[in-house]
Amino acid sequence: MADVRGELYLPLVTQMERQFGEELPSYLEGHIRRADDYIDARLSRSFTVPFDRPPTVVVTISAKLAAYFATAHFSETEELSEDKYKAAKEMLTDLQVSGVLPGEQEEAPRGLIRGGGAEQVFTDDAMSDW
């Protein structure tokens, strides 16, 4: 909950507190659930979701999306938090493409083979002995 409040702009938090009073946490929780559902849908092809213990990056994405959803619903001016929405979508895309959560051992994406090693350049002279 604190993560979402931290993503909301202070004047908006003040207005929401006036409007919802003690119901503000419930209001935000509804948007957190929407954000979590969206995240699970986007990441379901790359990861087992829902996460038992969501990584910090997923919590951050959820907070940004929930703040965007709450702002759009409350003020009907989602442009106020559009930067949060764009950042969250970029983070989700990066997770999908990499197929790796921060802190996990990197594995090759499904269907691809990864190689490694130092690049070496051999001149025509060095290769002439072969």
Score class of each variant (00 low, 15 high):
1 M>D: 09
1 M>R: 11
1 M>I: 04
3 D>L: 10
4 V>M: 08
4 V>R: 03
5 R>H: 06
5 R>Y: 10
5 R>S: 04
5 R>K: 08
6 G>V: 01
6 G>Y: 10
10 L>T: 05
11 P>Q: 11
11 P>C: 15
12 L>W: 14
12 L>S: 07
14 T>I: 14
14 T>Y: 14
15 Q>P: 00
18 R>L: 06
21 G>N: 04
21 G>S: 04
22 E>K: 10
22 E>Y: 02
25 P>T: 09
25 P>R: 14
25 P>A: 10
26 S>D: 06
27 Y>E: 13
28 L>P: 00
32 I>A: 06
33 R>P: 00
33 R>E: 08
35 A>L: 03
36 D>W: 09
36 D>P: 00
38 Y>M: 00
38 Y>R: 05
39 I>P: 02
40 D>C: 02
40 D>S: 10
40 D>Q: 13
45 R>I: 09
45 R>N: 14
46 S>I: 00
46 S>C: 11
46 S>R: 13
48 T>H: 11
50 P>G: 09
51 F>K: 12
53 R>D: 11
53 R>Y: 14
57 V>F: 05
58 V>Q: 05
58 V>P: 03
58 V>A: 05
58 V>H: 05
59 V>Q: 09
59 V>S: 14
59 V>M: 07
59 V>Y: 03
63 A>S: 09
64 K>R: 13
64 K>A: 11
67 A>C: 06
69 F>L: 00
70 A>L: 00
70 A>C: 02
70 A>D: 02
70 A>Q: 01
71 T>A: 02
71 T>Q: 04
74 F>N: 02
76 E>C: 02
78 E>T: 03
80 L>R: 12
80 L>N: 04
81 S>N: 13
81 S>G: 07
81 S>K: 03
82 E>Q: 14
82 E>T: 08
82 E>L: 11
83 D>T: 13
83 D>C: 12
83 D>S: 12
84 K>S: 08
85 Y>G: 04
85 Y>S: 14
85 Y>D: 05
86 K>Y: 12
86 K>F: 10
86 K>S: 07
87 A>V: 07
87 A>M: 02
88 A>R: 01
90 E>M: 07
90 E>Y: 09
91 M>K: 05
91 M>H: 08
92 L>K: 12
92 L>M: 11
93 T>Q: 06
95 L>K: 01
97 V>T: 03
97 V>D: 02
98 S>P: 00
99 G>Q: 03
100 V>C: 15
102 P>K: 12
103 G>H: 08
104 E>S: 14
110 R>C: 10
112 L>G: 04
115 G>E: 10
116 G>F: 12
116 G>V: 06
117 G>Q: 11
117 G>A: 13
119 E>C: 03
119 E>N: 03
119 E>M: 07
119 E>Y: 04
120 Q>R: 12
121 V>W: 01
121 V>M: 08
122 F>V: 07
124 D>H: 14
125 D>P: 04
126 A>K: 10
126 A>I: 08
126 A>H: 09
127 M>C: 10
128 S>W: 09
129 D>I: 15
130 W>D: 15
